[in-house]
Simulated scan of single mutants.
Amino acid sequence: MKVAVMGAGSIGCYYGGLLARAGLPVTLIGRRQHVDAVTERGLLMDVGGEQHRVPMPATTEARGVADADLVLFCVKSGDTEAVGREIAPHLRPDVTILSLQNGVDNPERLEAVVSRTVVPVAVYVATEMAGPGHVRHKGRGDLVMGPSPRDAEIVARFAAAGVPVQVSDQAMDALWGKLIVNCAYNALSALTQLPYGRLLQMAGVEAVMRDIVAECVAVATASGVSVAPDILPAVLGLARSMATQKSSTAQDLSRGKPTEIDHLNGIVVRKGAELGIPTPVNRVLVTLVKAVEVARAEDAGMASAT
């Protein structure tokens, strides 16, 4: 099984690196700084308190997906359609595409531009890029994926790489469950630049999270999604299991990158408006994160001008 990772950020590098370490031919497709580092020195992985260098090919070109049996699609939600159009001419007719992305609408949006089935995958992992070509694992790593014709082979390949994978007809419900967790943590972690453990210790944060979750559950339920009855304890418990983790939105803001807020709390706000369900707390978080994005972009522009 040949594997291509489209979007070699922390998620793509982590899973692609594990598969390559287990012996599969894996090509990383990402930004120039990471590609150059991996090409020169291999992918550096911090996993389980150990460091591993995993040699593998890497490229900045979309045609890196050519001949891949399996594509791990790991780009930011805002880039889904644009990157999908780039890779579409190079995809094999029988390719299996796994969407390992935040949000709940990426598989549908990607299918529309690549004209191939896209399998939704809920990703439960804490990772970060510690530098060019250097990924650091900080917790968990299991996946819940929707059914596909290659279920057995994909599960076996990931298992051999040490990645637990559950195949489920309720993968979209799992994606919504993860979205609710992300809505509770991502924006608050980004605005405060605090890791989850310290964040939940702040006065008033738990009450705000409860409000966020209540709005998300109302929208999900009205959308026909089955939400786990223990979703609130699961949300609050994440601060213990991933105490040192900062959200991907926090990492994006700190690096001056665009965030995925429109595809996290933003999608709850939009669907709530369609369904007539108020989502004031989620709306405030979207507004504040986007305001910080603008402010940081202006600061960066002023700094480059001087």
Rank of each mutant, 00 (worst) to 15 (best):
M1W: 10
K2N: 11
K2P: 15
V3M: 01
V3N: 04
I11H: 00
Y14T: 14
Y14G: 04
L19D: 08
G23M: 02
P25E: 14
L28F: 12
Q33Y: 02
V35C: 07
V35H: 03
D36W: 11
G42C: 01
L44C: 02
D46T: 07
V47H: 08
G48A: 09
A58V: 07
T59R: 09
T60S: 07
D67T: 12
A68Q: 08
A68K: 06
L70R: 09
V71W: 04
C74Q: 04
D79C: 01
A82M: 04
E86N: 06
I87A: 00
L91Q: 10
T96N: 00
Q101Y: 05
P107A: 04
P107I: 07
E108H: 05
S115Y: 12
S115Q: 14
V123P: 15
T127A: 08
M129H: 15
H134L: 01
V135P: 08
M145A: 05
G146Q: 03
S148V: 13
A152P: 13
F158R: 08
A159P: 02
V163C: 05
S168K: 06
D169R: 12
M172V: 12
M172Q: 12
D173R: 00
I180L: 03
I180S: 01
N182Q: 13
L194S: 14
L194D: 11
L194A: 14
G197E: 15
L199K: 12
L200C: 06
Q201H: 12
G204L: 08
V205A: 07
V205Y: 04
D211I: 05
E215F: 03
T221L: 00
T221C: 01
I231C: 08
L236R: 06
R240T: 11
S241F: 08
K246N: 11
T249N: 03
D252P: 03
S254H: 07
R255W: 12
G256C: 06
P258I: 13
I261F: 01
N265G: 09
V269F: 00
V269Y: 00
V269L: 00
R270P: 06
R270F: 02
A273E: 10
L275R: 12
L275N: 08
I277P: 00
T279G: 02
P280W: 06
R283Y: 00
L285H: 09
L288S: 04
K290H: 10
K290G: 09
K290I: 14
V292E: 10
V294R: 15
R296S: 11
G301W: 10
A305F: 02
T306K: 00
